[in-house]
Design a protein around this nucleic acid. Sequence first.
DNA 1: AACCTCATGTAACGCGTTACATGATTGG
DNA 2: CCAATCATGTAACGCGTTACATGAGGTT
Lengths: 192, 192
Amino acid sequence: MSLEHILLGYLQKPATGYDLGREFADGAAHFWHAERSQIYPALKKLQRHGWLECREEPSERGPARKVYEITEAGRAELRDWLAAGPHIGRERLGYIAQTFFLDALGDLDETTRIVEAMRARWRATLAVLDAGRAEVMAATGGAEPEDLELFHRYAALRMGLHQLRAKLAWCDETLAILDRRTARASSDTPEV
Amino acid sequence: MSLEHILLGYLQKPATGYDLGREFADGAAHFWHAERSQIYPALKKLQRHGWLECREEPSERGPARKVYEITEAGRAELRDWLAAGPHIGRERLGYIAQTFFLDALGDLDETTRIVEAMRARWRATLAVLDAGRAEVMAATGGAEPEDLELFHRYAALRMGLHQLRAKLAWCDETLAILDRRTARASSDTPEV
DNA sequence: AACCTCATGTAACGCGTTACATGATTGG
DNA sequence: CCAATCATGTAACGCGTTACATGAGGTT
């Protein structure tokens, strides 16, 4: 159900399916993803519900743009979804599953290698989110954004940052434990 | 692809589909979930691949138990999956999406209410994970587990704890910002 | 008698991914 | 001329959810 409501959320400003596809590649990337092949049918479904209206506009290049706009019923539906309490679903986290079973490799060096790879990936993602944060900070001069829309978008970004920093903290903690363990193991069986 | 590999991971010790269903309700709940209706066909598929073997055993109550056991090919497949680098997929986080669009409610009191509800939910989950951590701590006497299997299961649990604490830290941070904002707003427009 | 736990499944549906189709314009 | 960007989609497939079916044995 969430994708549809995210589309309604974005469509408080009129947009085309193509535009929305870009949002999922940019602004929303850290909490949701959708391909355009999924977006186009979803928009039609929202229109059938009466939550969106559509007008066609010629485009300079390519086929006519279908610009969607939210209706009053759509706004009500969005508000219901937002006010209905937190939408916390079950998270499927392959990397924790992997950690959970990593003993099957029977080798703590392999564990170290995998955790280091995780750290590298998340550091790269953190750099992207941090750039977004720096942008907001520059625009507001270091204060919390006054504007309600920006305030909430920034709050969502802060959540992403907290989560990423927690992942990285776990990597550091785990690597430290692994380090201590390898150090201890090599002092137990010292080289000749 | 992950569910199948998680099943292989668990099946380093023989188990039935029913047993595995319980794991997803208990031990694996914080990073993966699967219904038994999904597990039974998945086990058959793994068997077709030659990664599992199955023997039937009579059960004291109910129909015969199908006890699955991993094969050498299955172990190789699991090791490949584990060693292939971190399995970091796209996360779909409805609650961040919700935060992102919460300005549509046009009311910071509603935002406060939602964030408080999130905090309550995550506090409850944290209590569960923390109990698991306390159990391990009690068993090892406060040290990191020596046993390789326990070490990795505990590492996975620590990750869950880090993530939850990050969520809660965000709630606290956000509620503090909201508080300051409401305080400022009421001093700008003081009651008569 | 009603209900819980053990133990197996099937069927229908919905959400998400990948691949493909079409076609105009702009830039190298 | 080739590639990228704009702009719309469809089709096939796979993963996940919900609901249902069956039936034995033990508990209240």
